[in-house]
Amino acid sequence: MKIAGIRLDLIVPGVCGLALLFGLPIFLDLFSLLQVTLYAIMAILALSLAFIWGYGGILCLGHSAFFGLGAYAYAIAVINIGESTAPFLIAILVPTLAAAAVGYFMFYGRISDVYVGVMTLTLALILFNVVNSTSGAQYHIGKAPIGGYNGLPNVPGLNVPFDPDNSLDPGDMYYLCMGLLIVVYFGLRWLLTTRFGRVAVAIRENEKRVEFIGYDSRLHKLATFTIGGGLAGLAGCLFVNWGAYVSPTTFSMMQSAQVIIWVLVGGVGTLFGPMIGAVALSWLTVEVGSQQLIDANLLFGAILLVFVLLVPRGIMPVLIDRVWGRISLPRRPVFTAPPVAAREGKR
């Protein structure tokens, strides 16, 4: 998408992101700003799956495993340590290592795509059940009780790095989460232009050929999966900070399913789409939650059905074709653009 030499595909999200980052705090009250903070966190979670599924072609059915690990790792670490600098890093490190460990066995064991889905789903279920059955004083890590189905309340929030007396207020949290969302989005965009990113996409297209060319597809898939796991953990860490509370539902099936629906609705194989999907559907969750007429799960089921049947490519690819397709030049041959046309009928 290049008009008169200007990269619209970089400028539009960049300007939108900065406008939201600095504009919203002026126009929104604190309550609304808190909501937007949550949407930004969910958008990071959506990006993590959009990367490994949409670009890496690895369908992770239990993405909540890494989200939950990030959340619990932060909560347990911060209760033990007190100051949040190390816990923040631990919260990213733990799910990253978990993804690397599980990914090693999945990809170096060369199990098929379907079983990757099954294994990730199982991992999330195991973690959910383990954490859910740890109520009681005997289950604790250091000073932190794991808390079973009650979860961990009153988790201390983030402070300015190495300055425990200077904790972040909700306004700061907004800037942090929105800022991180922008960094993650453009970071992934950049990653997809590197050789690593392009080979990861090529593996999605044809793993055999990638190996015949001489790239180790196992290593690339492992790296893709690990990056996605780490980003999901970052989202989990921010999520705990947002609510000062963590419960086993962060590991739940519903959580995993939601992310998949966000990505699907937004468009598999894009980054911007899943962010829109995450924000729109998170907003809808809040709205539906405030009334009694329609059950939220029923509504999400209906939305999923409608998209799978009528808009299988998701919002973003359709938008790109309909709107940008008219005003811009032919498809830009760059990897960050979704291979839209080829996906028709493929998924």
Binding site: R198, V201, E205, N206, K208, R209, I213, P333, A342, K346
Partner: peptide
């Protein structure tokens, strides 16, 4: 065995 979703140039680039 080619990369169907990528352009000819992108295929060769890989």
């Amino acid at each position: 065995n080619v990369f169907d979703g990528l352009t000819v140039r992108e295929n060769l680039w890989i």
